[in-house]
Each structure stands twice: as structure tokens, then as C-alpha cells.
Amino acid sequence: EGALGYVREFTRHSSDVLSNLNELRLRGILTDVTLLVGGQPLRAHKAVLIACSGFFYSIFRGRAGVGVDVLSLPGGPEARGFAPLLDFMYTSRLRLSPATAPAVLAAATYLQMDHVVQACHRFIQASYEP
């Protein structure tokens, strides 16, 4: 008893978990919600959505979110703004271009992903500088 405890920290663990979750998403394993974005169906895991988005947190945290397995986002983001955010949630990489940044910004605002909103503003700002 009282032996000194040693911790082995696997520093890649969080990115390896996320990479496996993305593989599960791509193969439709344990995905529990279909998002209808601009009419396009996107499968995802509620747990990942709720962890990454304040909007989904407010929807799925309550009992009301339990039975929801198809969610349309009327008046919500268009697919070309939403899809890069879903990929970001599962990869930590956000693809931006001058053409897509406004749509991604609008979608991130809608999804209450404030840190991504700020990054989009920085990107748009920088793309205007000479």
C-alpha cells in the first residue's frame, strides 16, 4: 500500500478515438441521428454533435432529444456550410475557402460553435488583406 502511482499518458489517444469515431460515422455504425440539411441526409452520432455544438447540446441534452432520430433544420444552414463543420467535428480540421467561408460562418453561428465562428472571421479578415 502507498506504493507510488505511475501514469502512462498515451498522447495520441484523443485523436485516435476521434479518428475511429469518424470511421464509425462513415460506415454508419452506431449513428443515431439523420440530419436533413438543405434536403441532404447526413448521418451522425448525437454524442459527437452534442459535444461540439451548443445548438445540439440544447436540443439533445433534454428528454425531448431522446426520441429524435431524424432532425431537419428548417431555415437552418445550407449543406455546403454544414458539411465542413460535421467533418471538423470528427477530424479537428476545418476546410475553408473564400467561396465557402461565408456559408460555413453562417452554419457555425447557427450551430453555436463560437470558436469556429471566430476562426472563420479571422480567415475572412485575412483574405481581404492585400
Partner: peptide, 22 residues
Amino acid sequence: HEGVVATVKEAGRSIHEIPREE
């Protein structure tokens, strides 16, 4: 990746923090 011009590293927080149970 096709067509990626540059990758910029963002060191700050990326997503919201789920409040700890009060």
C-alpha cells in the same frame, strides 16, 4: 489533400465546454 493551399494550426479551444454537473 487535393487543393489545400495551407494548413493553419489553431491552438485555442475548438468547441464549447459542457458545464460540470452543479
